[in-house]
Design a protein around this nucleic acid. Structure first.
Length: 579
RNA sequence: UGCCUCGUGGUGUAAUUGGCAACACGUCUGACUCUGGAUCAGAAGAGUCCAGGUUCGAACCCUGGCGAGGCAACCA
């Protein structure tokens, strides 16, 4: 059994869900057509990567890994007018961050410009390409429509010698932009628009971010892409559906050139509810300041998700869960949220933080006493240990955790009722203090000294109950000691759009559906002192609230947190239902 | 009114390639709980776009409809 057969066998016995791409690969391996799987991720450096690209990245690198093959990272940088090193750098960073490695196989289509030029000459010599000196309008007008055939260009039958001469002079910069193009000579009446003598080269007197001033003609994507894949020995060129119609053209080029023929497989791009995914629209959101930048935590970009606090593991898990097929789809953003919660639940350190503070004075607690209470860092992972949290006479609780006139199933604090303070005592609300406007500004509560939490009773189900076992209350709430509290700014994010598919409305522009409440800033959240030294990028679970991460703008004396995602909130659901 | 691709629970993906549709998310119950988290147990929800045909048997094959998406940048 050779290597490919072994890989095949391994794959067929694996538990990972199959898909149509794997089936094709399996066939190619079985037939011996392919010995070692080689894929590539080929972005154009003209924008930031988004979650849809993440799916493609995970697919391409994932397939290579699964079949013990290789995956290249290649930039399709054939349009210097729109591309830049800023984008190259961000893309490299993002793919790396997602956890993938291309070893020394970082390529650029621009690496192949010389080769591509030679290929073009070969095509001209075969009489299969010609220089067209029509204007772009003329070319456009003669292309026809999907239902009507196009017309042949008057320059279509130039001699090979003339074409060779003209093409070389195009390369030498003798002509102005727009005066000539190189076109493939295929079939102006083809039902496939892309076979109607597509343009292969255009004159662009623009410096390229990698080749500088060397070239003033640049290959079109269609000429560069297939040949680049071929040059790299790619076995399976995986791309999105809109390139399906280009495949006959790639095949034609490869056949004419008589070079290695990758197999192109198209899949449906990812769509997510409550967001947009096209680069153009994302660019618009950035340029028109609907968001603060490509890495705004509300953006579906990799950099936005990273800043929001998502983990590479969560994104990879998500990519696996969405599957891959050819039909149009729109994935519920709840699935993405599930993937982060699932990952962070296992890994995030628990802490207590109060977003909207309400002060409580414990009337019967000794004035200057401070207790250091044991708290569990992560109930899902004992190895993360415990920490001490200071407790004193005055504490903050969440405003939402108190209601003066509570509805039936409200398990938190209300006048005359008891609630447990997590890791501390059971308290009872004795008095509600209001200002002149009737706003609740403070609560006076008593605490029950006999109900102090014991770590054992929290971690071990068999030793349930504390000193006064049997004393149980329905609710447990989080808190922060007033005199030990650390101030912080907390940024809350919600979906960027108000409807599931903002691009679906034919009357209205997607921007009309931007959610005006997608961003809320909280200036004086109160954190337990453990968080004082939190560093940018670190992630935590604020108990009962959600997962948060330290923003890159955070400083030691001005902490800034981003909310990644809330915890699953059944109470919120009940409340919503009752409305 | 051309060509290409695709129609399976609310969403997404499966179905040993012809053997009476499974998994995940979501939704809803319940148990447990010092996070209304996590976990656990369970339920509802599609008869596979429609109509014919082949077959003992069709989500899978055939025919015809219907519907959706893509294709007319010197973008990718």
């Amino acid at each position: 059994m050779d290597d490919s057969k072994e890989e095949l066998a391994k794959n067929e016995s694996s538990t990972a869900q199959s898909n149509f791409i794997k089936e094709i690969i399996n066939e190619d391996l079985k037939s011996g057509k392919v010995k070692k799987v080689h894929t590539r991720f080929p972005p154009e450096p003209n924008g930031y990567l988004h979650i849809g690209h993440a799916k493609s990245i995970c697919l391409n690198f994932g397939l290579a890994k699964e079949y013990n093959g290789l995956c290249n990272l290649r930039f399709d940088d054939t349009n210097p007018a729109k591309e830049s090193v800023e984008y190259v750098d961000s893309i490299i960073e993002d793919v790396k961050w997602l956890g993938f490695d291309w070893d020394d196989r970082l390529f650029y289509a621009s690496d192949y410009f010389d080769q591509l030029y030679e290929y073009a000459i070969k095509l001209i010599k075969k009489g299969k390409a010609y220089v067209d000196s029509s204007t772009s309008e003329q070319i456009k007008d003669s292309r026809g429509t999907p239902t009507e055939p196009g017309k042949e260009s008057p320059f279509r039958n130039r001699s090979v010698e003339e074409n060779l001469d003209l093409f070389e002079r195009m390369k030498n910069g003798e002509f102005e932009e727009g005066t000539h193009v190189l076109r493939a000579k295929i079939d102006m009446s083809s039902p496939n628009m892309w076979m109607r003598d597509p343009i292969l080269y255009r004159i662009r007197k623009v410096p390229h971010h990698r080749t500088g001033d060397k070239w003033c003609i640049y290959p079109m994507y269609d000429w560069a892409h297939g040949q680049s894949d071929s040059i790299e020995g790619i076995t399976h060129s995986i791309c999105t559906l809109e390139f399906e119609i280009h495949r006959p053209l790639y095949d034609w080029c490869l056949d004419q050139l008589e070079i290695h023929h990758p197999r192109q497989i198209e899949f449906a791009r990812l769509n997510l509810t409550y967001t947009v995914m096209s680069k153009r629209k994302l660019l618009e959101l950035v340029e028109e300041k609907y968001v603060t930048g490509w890495d705004d935590p509300r953006m579906p970009t990799i950099s936005g998700l990273r800043r929001r606090g998502f983990t590479p593991e969560a994104i990879r898990d998500f990519s696996e869960r969405v599957g891959v097929a050819k039909r149009d789809n729109i994935i519920d953003v709840a699935l993405l949220e599930y993937s982060v919660r699932d990952d962070l639940n296992k890994r995030a350190q628990r802490v207590m933080a109060v977003l909207k503070p309400l002060k409580i004075v414990l009337t019967n607690y000794p004035d200057n006493q401070v207790e250091e209470l044991d708290s569990v860092n992560n109930p899902e992972d004992e190895s993360m240990g415990t920490r001490k949290v200071p407790f004193s006479k005055e504490i903050f609780i969440e405003q939402d955790d108190f209601m003066e006139n509570p509805p039936k199933k409200f398990f938190r604090l209300s006048p005359g009722n008891e609630v447990r303070l997590r890791y501390a005592y059971i308290i009872k609300c004795e008095e509600v203090i209001k200002d002149e406007q009737g706003n609740i500004i403070e609560l006076k509560c008593s605490y029950d000294p006999g109900t102090k939490s014991h770590l054992r009773s929290i971690t071990s189900a068999t030793e349930r109950g504390s000193a006064q076992s049997g004393r149980k209350v329905k609710g447990t709430i989080h808190w922060v000691s007033v005199k030990h509290a650390v101030n912080a700014e907390v940024r809350l994010y919600d979906r960027l759009f108000t409807i599931e598919d903002p691009e679906s409305d034919e009357q209205k522009n997607y921007k009309e559906f931007i959610n005006p409440n997608s961003f809320e800033i909280i200036n004086s959240a109160k954190l337990e002192p453990y968080l004082q030294n939190a560093k940018p990028g670190e992630r935590f679970q604020f108990e009962r609230l959600g997962y948060f991460c330290v923003d890159k703008e955070s400083e030691k004396d001005k902490l800034v947190f981003n909310r990644t995602v809330t915890l699953k909130d059944t109470w919120a659901k009940i409340e919503k239902r009752n409305q």
